[in-house]
Design a protein around this nucleic acid. Sequence first.
DNA 1: CTCACCCATGCGATCGATTGCGGGGGAGTC
DNA 2: GACTCCCCCGCAATCGATCGCATGGGTGAG
Lengths: 337, 337
Amino acid sequence: MTSGRPPTLDDVARAAGVHKATASRALNPATRHQVSARTAHRVSLEATRLGYVPNTLARGLRTSRTAAVGVLIPDLTNPLFPPIVRGIQDRLEQQGYTALLVNTDADEARERAEFDALRSRRVEGFIVATARRHHPLLELAVRERITFVTVNRFTELPDVPAVLGDDADGIAQAVAHLRGLGHTRLAHLAGPQTLSTGHVRMRAFRAAAPGAAVVECASYTEAAGYDAARLLFERHPHTTAVLAGNDLIALGTLRAIEGLGRCCPADVSVVGFNDMPFADRFRPPLTTVHVPHHLMGVQAAQLLLDHLRAAAPPWSILLPARLVVRGSTARRRPGPT
Amino acid sequence: MTSGRPPTLDDVARAAGVHKATASRALNPATRHQVSARTAHRVSLEATRLGYVPNTLARGLRTSRTAAVGVLIPDLTNPLFPPIVRGIQDRLEQQGYTALLVNTDADEARERAEFDALRSRRVEGFIVATARRHHPLLELAVRERITFVTVNRFTELPDVPAVLGDDADGIAQAVAHLRGLGHTRLAHLAGPQTLSTGHVRMRAFRAAAPGAAVVECASYTEAAGYDAARLLFERHPHTTAVLAGNDLIALGTLRAIEGLGRCCPADVSVVGFNDMPFADRFRPPLTTVHVPHHLMGVQAAQLLLDHLRAAAPPWSILLPARLVVRGSTARRRPGPT
DNA sequence: CTCACCCATGCGATCGATTGCGGGGGAGTC
DNA sequence: GACTCCCCCGCAATCGATCGCATGGGTGAG
């Protein structure tokens, strides 16, 4: 009755009085028809009675299909990623797959180590949220014919499927919104230009607001946003509207504005990007560009699964972004000029 | 030069002109001393040249050590969990372990399915953040001698190690704080009593404020907090201070207060629990009890690893909680009475 | 010179499940 | 009654790495 060690397929087979090969066929839905209904029933009965759970390692070793995929993200505590990861997990789970999640902290060596660890676990493919525009590791992955898709960001390599938000359109909406409120002195606190999101959003901003001020942040963090905002207001004190590279940068900008004794949105309007969770509860509630992150994760997982099953064309998917107007933007106040 | 399929240990051994057993010993730090330095060097050279990465499945099958642990959480998008998970991952990674993360959404059937899936992957143990006070699945796990620890919550079973925050003390601090501000009509919006956190916090509240109003929320969500707060103010309109079961309930309470045309903190003070990320950026900034969630994850992972290596005593760990005073609590305004 | 000992390495079984191949037996047909 | 065909099922190889055991050659001591 008590199990010394977990029961094996052989145990089940013996209990049912058949060979383990028969038991294997009986338990696998795809091969059950090769077995008489009577024995199939008897085997599954014994299986549940013994609490049999198949050994995925052994199966994976034999079939070289592990039903696992690696997921590379920079940092789970960045609020951008939980919804994406959740979307990935939801879709993968539906198909019986498991996500192996690792954080890289934007550290190349660490990413490489984690990548190898995942390969050693024989994941069938990767979902990469850490992509940089130029990314040696991903070049290697392409050379080794490893199946992967990028999510949220892309890499400058041909034929790599990606699931992206329509960042350029989101920026265009934000600029139009600010213009509509009467702002003429716009500025952009750009994300790192090594990342596709930083690059695309900045180019979109430049296209929509030629000649406007742009300061690049060292990273997508509140601290970097704060520093960049201080620099911006030093160089361009008359700025009345800031389009931040993402919500964390916007948060840093808000802090900088407060530190300068100014007020958002009365003196300066701020727009974020991503619509991170609880952005509506901030002070002030953040006007920001919403990107469907959960859906993004779902689509990335689906895209990867498609490529795993058959050599699907290297499609990419562009998800619509949508400006959400809240309390951090307001009509430009006629200046003291 | 190009690899049809990933190189195996046998490939490396052949390239180095030795037997695969020798190659195995050369590559494993623990057995390298059994091999001459010359061959060890030659083998590792060939291994890196061929891009060899060991097959964890095969190794795990043979050794029945997979260096993987299962992590059960309710929902990754609940901001409570990313820091905990991150702490777990950080510690596990240090030891070469990998976390297999699944969401249960508080659904018993789903939890069971995920649990079995993880067992099928032969995880060596579990870290459980979904524990309920009475939990059939965990009873089963104990019977089957599966190694696991619970984190953040505990289950009413003997000898199950747990890593917990000192919730009772946190509540005591919060009540003392509110009393110090002159509040006498306190109320508690308790979390679900099926969870140890809900139960412990409510008992601590009852002990610190005998006779004060208590309403139980259906779940730890903003929506449930909103509903419970409405009910509370209907029954006890003179309440001037609310101690919420967690930050999400507090957020729902804030919304209810606003909906009633009252103001926090001028009319009603609110205290949350957990100090979730960005709680300081809310409107108003949330006074709440800080619990060291990242550390909690680290300790849980460490505790599990200890139990995996040797049969450590079923220690539990209590981490200190600390009230963080922000803008959602204020001195009681002399009422119109 | 011989014997004992040890170090470095090879051999082969093993972990647990899958799968191609082949065989036994029952049913159906002429 | 004999033959064919098909359905079930068993046999054994296989995936890749680990490890107990055996072995060969070299060294040091007597």
